[in-house]
């Protein structure tokens, strides 16, 4: 029974990319993006996240937004794996421009160069930018 029920909802799987280009605490974009990503996990689509420009600051280690009395959501990126969201792409040029490497990030990611990032974007069915 339950298998049949699930089959009814198994439509075509689309590739969704969430593109993050803003620093985490100055605006609401980063947190909004993360919440949409967590919700999207329920729909069993092919979800990936891209971090470029100031978006790479979202993943920076050592953040504590609690001192601003704001939600400290950096640890939540570590929960994505449990939601079966495992494709996190970070642009090398953006990291370098900010003096960072993958070692400075709260989660394991795939570091890609700008040309590869452009290819990944063009390869999606849906791109959502934050």
């Amino acid at each position: 029974m339950s298998d049949e029920f699930e089959d009814d909802f198994s439509g075509e799987i689309k590739r969704f990319m969430f593109v993050n280009r803003k620093a985490p605490h100055g605006t609401i974009y980063a947190l909004e993006s993360l919440e949409v990503v967590l919700i999207s996990a329920a729909f069993d689509q092919d979800v990936s996240l891209a971090f470029l420009d100031d978006g790479v600051f979202q993943l920076r280690k050592g953040q504590n937004a609690n001192v601003l009395e704001m939600k400290n959501f950096a640890p939540t990126y570590r929960a994505l794996e449990g939601y079966d969201i495992e494709k996190l792409y970070v642009e090398r040029e953006s990291l370098e421009a900010r003096g960072m490497t993958a070692d400075d990030l709260v989660v394991p990611v795939e570091v890609v160069d700008r040309a590869r990032m452009a290819e990944l974007m063009a390869d999606q069915d849906v791109v959502m930018s934050f």
């Binding site: 280009r21 040029e93 700008r114 040309a115 990032m117 452009a118 974007m121 063009a122």
Partner: peptide, 15 residues
Amino acid sequence: TNDLASCLGHLGTDG
């Protein structure tokens, strides 16, 4: 903002 510059950096050959 750097949106235009960043976009141009990701335009590729066909964008």
